[in-house]
Structures are given as structure tokens and as C-alpha cells.
Amino acid sequence: MALTSTTTGSTQVITVHADRIDAAMAIQFKEDMRTQTETDASRVVLDISLVEFIDSSGLGAIVASMKQLGGDRVLDLAGLHPVVEKVFRLTRMDTVFRLFPSLDDALSTGAD
């Protein structure tokens, strides 16, 4: 699972370079997210615009990544494809995460 990261001020953007986050890569994704988020950034934006598909294991790995951040840091998601967005909506995880149509939308909105 290839993740790249850039940090500007207190915001870290992590980009997922894969077309899916599913059962086959969920554990690796969670571990790579742990490594990438060992930073001081108070807000992490996960850019998943290249991810065309997610299953419930992939969803679970994103939830686990949010928990790994601890209570005072936030994980927002940007660039959700319709199928990915549907998995968040059906499981009601859209009420837990802030979802942005694109990275630009996420970055033009504050961290609160």
C-alpha cells in the first residue's frame, strides 16, 4: 500500500496511491497509516481520490486509523468516489467523518 504525505502548518495530507482499500490490504493500510501519522499535525486529511472501491474491511481500517490518532487529532476524508461514499453512508460512518468531494474542498475548510 503506497501512501505519500505532505504537511503544511498543522495539516497533514496523506494520499492513497491504490485503486482499492479492501480485505487484502486493510492490515497493511492500518500499519502504514500508523507510521505516516507519527507527526504533530492536528489535522490529517486522507486523500482517497484514486481509490475506486472500498469494502467493510477497508472501512474498518480507516476507522482504526482515526482511533490511532487519539482524541485531540482529527481525520478528514477527501475525494470519495460514489461507491466509496455509499459504503460510508450505508454504515452511517458519514456521520463520524467529515467527507469532502475533493482535496481542494477539504483544504479550503478549516479544521474545526
Binding site: 467493510s56 482515526m66 482524541g71 454504515t91
Partner: peptide, 14 residues
């Protein structure tokens, strides 16, 4: 709370 969030148990529901 965030720490209470489920990480699975959605398969058959979906």
C-alpha cells in the same frame, strides 16, 4: 465516542 467506533460487523448488513 471515537474509541467506541466499530471496525467491523457490517458485511451481512451491507
Amino acid at each position: 465516542t471515537i474509541q467506541d467506533l466499530p471496525e467491523g460487523g457490517f458485511g451481512w448488513f451491507l
